[in-house]
Structures are given as C-alpha cells and as structure tokens.
Design a protein around this nucleic acid. Sequence first.
DNA 1: TGGCGCATAGTGGTCCGACCACATCGCGGA
DNA 2: TCCGCGATGTGGTCGGACCACTATGCGCCA
Lengths: 234, 234
Amino acid sequence: MDDETAPQKGTVTQRAIERIKAMIGEGRLEPGQRLPTERDLAAQLGMSRSSMREAIRALTVLGVLEARHGSGIYVTQLEAGDLLETFGVVADLSRGPRLVELLEIRRILESTATALAAARITADQLAEVERHLAAMNATDDPEEILAHDLAFHREIAVAAGNETMAAILEGLSSRTFRARVWRGYQEEGAFARTRREHAAIHRALAARDPEAARTAAAAHVGEVEEWLRTQLGP
Amino acid sequence: MDDETAPQKGTVTQRAIERIKAMIGEGRLEPGQRLPTERDLAAQLGMSRSSMREAIRALTVLGVLEARHGSGIYVTQLEAGDLLETFGVVADLSRGPRLVELLEIRRILESTATALAAARITADQLAEVERHLAAMNATDDPEEILAHDLAFHREIAVAAGNETMAAILEGLSSRTFRARVWRGYQEEGAFARTRREHAAIHRALAARDPEAARTAAAAHVGEVEEWLRTQLGP
DNA sequence: TGGCGCATAGTGGTCCGACCACATCGCGGA
DNA sequence: TCCGCGATGTGGTCGGACCACTATGCGCCA
C-alpha cells in the first residue's frame, strides 16, 4: 500500500533518497526520530538493503540522517549547522577565481552579520568575543591563533541572531579553506594588520555602532580578498 | 604502495570519501576526468565494491562525481552550480523561523548582486532580463510566472559576475521553496505589488544605478520576508 | 570501398546472503 | 539492591552473482 505508483524514474537508490526526503518534508519523520532498520526500510520500499544503504549514506553526508552503529538511524535536528556542513566541501574543492568569489560572499555576509551583532550582542557574548580576541593576541602559535580567529567570528555571527548565516560563514571559514588562503597571507607579515582590524571590529561592537562594525568587517575580509586577487591576477 | 598509512579512523566508506576528495584537492584528479572502475578503485583502496559504491554515491549527491551507467565515473566540472545543488535541500527541509533566516540571507545577497549587476550588466543581458519581465506580465499561469520570475533573478545574479553567488541564490529560490512560500503570499493579491517591484528593479538596472538597484531588490525580498514573519509571529 | 548494424566486452546498477563490530537491554548472581 | 555478562538487534563490511546500459569494433551488405 505504499509503492504502487512506481514511476521508474531514475535509479532505485535515487528514488529511495527522494522518498525519505519527502517523508521528512511532509512531517512524517520528525527531527531526532529513529527510522526503521535498514532491512525494514528496504523491504517497505521494495528494494535491496544495498540500495537502501546507499540512499542512507547519501542522506547522511547531506546532514539529514545520522547512523549510529549498533543503535539505529536517526533524523538529525535538521538545524542549519547539520545541513550546511557540506558547504565546507565547496570551499575545500574551490580554487583560483572561485576562491575570490567565496571571499566576496563572505565579505558581504560577514559585514552584515557584524553590523547586526553590533545592535544585538549581549554582554555575555561580547565578553566571549573579548576572550577570543585576547587569546589570539597572547600567543604565537598559528594553529591557536586560527582557532580563536574562527571562534571570534563565529561568536559574532551567532550574536547576529541568524543561525543559518552563522552556519554558512562557518563553512566559508572551514579549516582547510582558511589554511590554504591564510598561510600565504600571514607569511607576508599581516599579523599586525589582522590584529588592528580585529580590534576595530571589537571596538565597533562594544560601541554598539552597526555602521562602523559593517565597515570594519568588510575591510577585514576585503584585505584578504584583495591580496588573493593580486595573487591570481598577473 | 598506496594504503599503508591506514589510520583506521571512522568507517571504511568514510575513509574512501576522504581519499577521493583528497585526490581531487591535490589535483590528482582533474575536472571532467574519468575515474578507474568501481572494482578497480575498491581494490586500490583495499575495500569491497559495496563500500566503494557508497562512497561514490555520497560524492555523487554532493555534486563532486557523476556516474554514467555503462560508461564510467567522472569528476564533474566542479563549478559552483555542481557543488551547490545540495543547497536546495536546505531550503526544502527548512521551515518556520529558518525560512525567515533564509529569506534574510537572500535579501542580503540578492540586493548586493542586483547592485553589482546595475554596474556591470551588458546590453544583451539586460535585454534578456526584459524578456523575462515581459513574459511574466503577459500570462496568468502561476507556473509560468514562477519560471520567468526565477529566470529574471538568475539573469541578474549572473550579470553580477559572481557565479558562486548566483548558484547560492538559485538554491535559495528552488522550486519547492518558492512554491511553499510564494503560494500563500501571492494568494493575498500581491501580484500587482510584485510587478511594481520587478519594474523598479529593471528601471534601476537600465539606469545603471547600483544604489537604486540595491534598494529595490532589498525591498522586493523584504516584502516577502516581512509577510512570512507575520505569518509565523502570533 | 564505404557505411551500417549487430555481437560483444566492459561499465555502473541491483540484489542476495553471510559475517563482523558495536550498542542496548535484561537476566542472573553476588 | 546493584553489578556484570551474555543474548539480541542494529549498522558496517564483504564477496559474488546477475542485470541494464554503453561503447567499441568487426564483419556484412550496398
């Protein structure tokens, strides 16, 4: 009573992916809910366990499902972070001109997010931002700097109140992406400039000045963007 | 001579995914290139064909690989459109407050893209925009209107010169997403307003006025955003 | 001689059955 | 009462078989 309308479109696995996505879209599967076993699911949709496993794997990498060995398959919370994890793949596999495009997008979103954060950030969140700022200036270990740099911007994005935007920015700042771009940038002695820019962003946040925050954030990303552009240009 | 560093981390399939991604990242696999057969790949990485197939399926849905039945497996062109196709999944599975967040992101990106387009659009591209605008106003079929609406904005995004941004906006305007949101919006007699807003956007493009274009686009998306916000609010 | 069509080999797609690794729960003993 | 260990069920892996489709090239026909 469930598969009679077999449209035969595409591969069996592809159909299974669509079916499961549809079940979630229609609300028949709630976030966090456990699915039937692979064997049962395969039987219900009239296909082999192998094909069903491929479908499940596909939805797993998309951040829609989560498979726990020995326990079962569960729908994720379907939050922005879950679904946009794959965004990092784009950043990782991009190069050349597309890296500049990604930085351009980050500049647009980051400047807006920082402006919003200036208007909405709480005292606690601001304290957290300051903590990462201080930690960043207190060490010379590039790895640690990078980690706090990431956390610094993530805290701001969260304070902007748009989790989806924060997740996208997170993807645009994936470790491998930043490592690839930042390495060359920082080697040119840009540490001092980066610290100055971070300080300017923090100042604007503390002053609750959205326009200053927007400008500072745009300049911060724009610096790297311009540097990368010249690297690729001639 | 190729798998001795087996770190045993995670599942076999997961390792295969990382390996293939790494091969592409390191340039050992070029866009458009054909991969070895599933059987060979599995043998090279010392795993079963089943596990390798899951890895390939995963990379296929991510838009990194493309499998052609009877022919072979190929690396995609790795262009923004290929990799960001999965962005539509986010839009499809989101609901409630996250829909507003997505529209907010679209407003930010779309307004910037429209402003850039105003400065860069060519005569041919502008003519194409006008064609879709006219077609949109010449019919009452909601499906056709939606199609030309999509094409209208896509043409503008392309004219902005950032393919990655165009691909993201494409995902944020996926058919099912717009159908879900637009339906209710248009039922409230918003057709006239939408036409007015589209006309304003076109006017700003024709006048090569980036600021007017930014404002018009932001207002256009913002209208829907506000409507959706009130729908969810009380 | 030239082109067409079919046989064939090779590829991804699907299915099956078996076994392994891990998580969970319940029963029995201390 | 509580702890521990084994039974059970789950996802993870494997190997092989067969199907569906493509591409290639050979041989036949015009």
